[in-house]
Amino acid sequence: MDNSRGSLWKRIVNNQVSLLVAIFIVLLVVFQIWNRNFLSGSNIITMMNSAGLYGIIAVGMAILIISGQVDLSAGYVGCLAGVLVSMFMEWYKMPWPVALVLAIAVGALCGLASAALVIYLKFPNFIATLAVANVCNGLVYVITNAASVPISNKFFMKIGGSTLGPFSSVFIITVALFVIYGFMLKFTKFGRQIYMCGGNPSAARLAGINSVKITFFAFINCGALSALAGILLASRMGVGSPMSVVGADLTAITAVVLGGIAFTGGTGTMLGAFVGVCILTAFSNALIVIGLDADFQIMATGILLIIALIIDYYRSRGRERRMKKEAKEIALRKTINKEQK
């Protein structure tokens, strides 16, 4: 009996995703005890809506970080897309599907620009994406003069603002994206190539993997998904706001690192990223529900990011030690076999 309990505990601790799920459940229980309304129906929907927005950006960010890159323009790209889709529909009277596709295309274009700066001009990724972020930010204010663009298309507003049973439409879209991209990462050759590019770029190159193509894909994908997040937010709010989504990139990075995706690239799963998003959303919401002062809330989110990075550091070190140990054992076995021969 004791052995099985011990092994269950070990299994939970050693399995990254199980540990995260356990932490998530503990958080929910603690905050529910603190405030009995934390797990009320309306608050769960609020958390799902919040998780939906950050989750969509986190999907793109997860792929990017696994491939060894990072994008600090995701928030501003999302903001630009939200404003553009509103502008296309309200000022230029475009049908909403056309407006939506165009806005996503602009997001993809921003990702393309970031990739080009990183690959061809050898900019560090955070500098390249910050530059793109500033361009997007400026564009938003040139277009809107800091005023929101209200949306009158009721059908479009339903896309981001409706529910299916207890689940919000944004959350359903987010879960679908996590499933699709999770499948791609785990079960396809392309997914394995993304891991290789991030984990060991030299080995990937030697293995004949086209890391340029993968980097382009990762950035364009992140730009397009950030645009989708901005569009869904505009749909939910009923306005294209020049201040929406900004800052969501850092939140998404925190969530995916918390979810076990190494900041150095090459490891992590979509399931872990999803649980990371849920933990972060629940944590942020709980701080509001328990009435913590705004300044302490900002500090708490920063502390959470530091904790996530520390955990990531020790996980990476543990991984490196395990890999070195395995490599030594393999070399030793080869030597023994040679001697035996």
Binding site: N35, R36, N37, F38, S40, S42, N43, T46, N49, S50, L53, S148, L233, M237, V239, S241, M243, S244, V245, V246, G247, N285, L287, I288, V289, I290, G291, D293, A294, D295, Q297, I298
Partner: peptide, 26 residues
């Protein structure tokens, strides 16, 4: 409901007001 937490935006106001109402709904 202090929007300084998530930034001066409509979206932050939605999150703050929703969570505050939920916290005291009973």
């Amino acid at each position: 409901a202090d929007t300084a937490v998530g930034g001066f935006s409509t979206q932050t106001a939605v999150d703050m007001v929703s969570a505050t109402i939920s916290a005291h709904a009973s």
